[in-house]
């Protein structure tokens, strides 16, 4: 068993799983916004980045790690809600290109603002978890206290979102508002509030993701910290299906593992090429995503 756990294959699977849950979380946050408002949020990485700077850097001077995490997530909620109310609401019902342009512009502005305030120099966030791999029989295997923290946090967030959507009245209203806004209004659901809440939750999930990424000793926090991760999360959401929270998470995890093998056995430069190939092939085979239900229509 020890020999297997320290083998190259097990290391790749564990390393890929750690990356994959992060891609899955980014994909989930994209799906939350897409399902509720039909908008692809290109600033889905930058908004949480800003919340992470405010919570972990500005308040990091005064408080410990966990209090800063709570503050960052609360700031993320505020940024999500504020963005929906001020920037996104006027875009509902407008041509599809409008929100794309606005959110790409917002991404650029947020990264510039963060660089102006905190500079582009990477900042390492002190975490309570060691990034040094565990050892088995004197050999390292690709799992550390920090990567366990990443995996467990991601799973807890995913389960919490699933429980919220599946088993609570609030989740029922969120889903109904996304699927049938007019019918929901006729049943007394405050749809506008639900749309704001969708963006709030999405940015909250995104902020937890950004903290997990930036807390990595080897990455640190920069204004562009989420750019690469966003690209992989975006591909995972498109492959899994923008309508499918479970699909996007599964696609994120599977992609993380595949890309880890590619990086190890082929070349790290091939990772993005393989990711794009996965996107193209899956979109050709299943344009709505692998896990989205096939839509039929009466003719």
């Amino acid at each position: 068993m020890d020999v297997f756990l320290t083998s190259r294959i097990a290391s790749d699977v564990l390393g890929g799983l750690t990356n994959g849950v992060i891609y899955g979380l980014v994909a989930l946050s994209l799906v939350l916004v897409w399902r509720s408002t039909g908008i692809l949020n290109f600033a889905q990485g930058a908004m949480p980045m800003l919340a992470t700077y405010v919570g972990m850097v500005t308040f990091g001077h005064y408080f410990g790690y966990w209090i800063c995490v709570v503050i960052a997530v609360l700031v993320g909620f505020l940024i999500g809600a504020g963005t929906e109310r001020v920037l996104v609401r006027p875009l509902y019902g407008k041509p599809e290109i409008n929100p794309v342009v606005v959110m790409v512009g917002f991404l650029t502005v947020l990264e510039a603002v963060a660089a102006a305030i905190w500079s582009s120099t990477p900042r390492s966030l002190t975490t309570p978890f060691s990034p040094i791999d565990f050892h088995l029989s004197g050999k390292p295997f690709a799992l550390s206290a920090f990567s366990l923290y990443q995996i467990i946090t991601a799973v807890v967030v995913m389960v919490a979102v699933a429980v919220l959507f599946r088993f609570t009245n609030l989740g029922l209203q969120l889903r109904a508002s996304a699927l049938a806004p007019e019918v929901s209004r006729l049943l007394g659901v405050r749809v506008n509030r639900m749309l704001t809440l969708g963006w709030t939750l999405s940015t909250g999930v995104g902020t937890i993701t950004a903290i997990l990424v930036a807390s990595n000793f080897f990455t640190g926090l920069t204004p562009q910290v989420m750019d690469g991760i966003f690209a992989f999360g975006f591909i995972a959401a498109a492959v899994g299906g923008l309508d499918s929270p479970v699909g996007s998470i599964v696609a994120g995890i599977v992609m993380g593992i595949i890309l880890q093998f590619v990086g190890d056995y082929v070349n790290s430069n091939a990772i993005i090429l393989v990711a794009l190939a996965i996107l193209i092939v899956s979109l050709m085979a299943r344009p709505n995503g692998v896990f989205s239900p096939v839509k039929t229509r009466r003719v």
Partner: peptide
Amino acid sequence: IGEFTVEENLRLGAL
């Protein structure tokens, strides 16, 4: 709402 079960549709009405 076709994607909802009968019970979920009714729960939505009962909110």
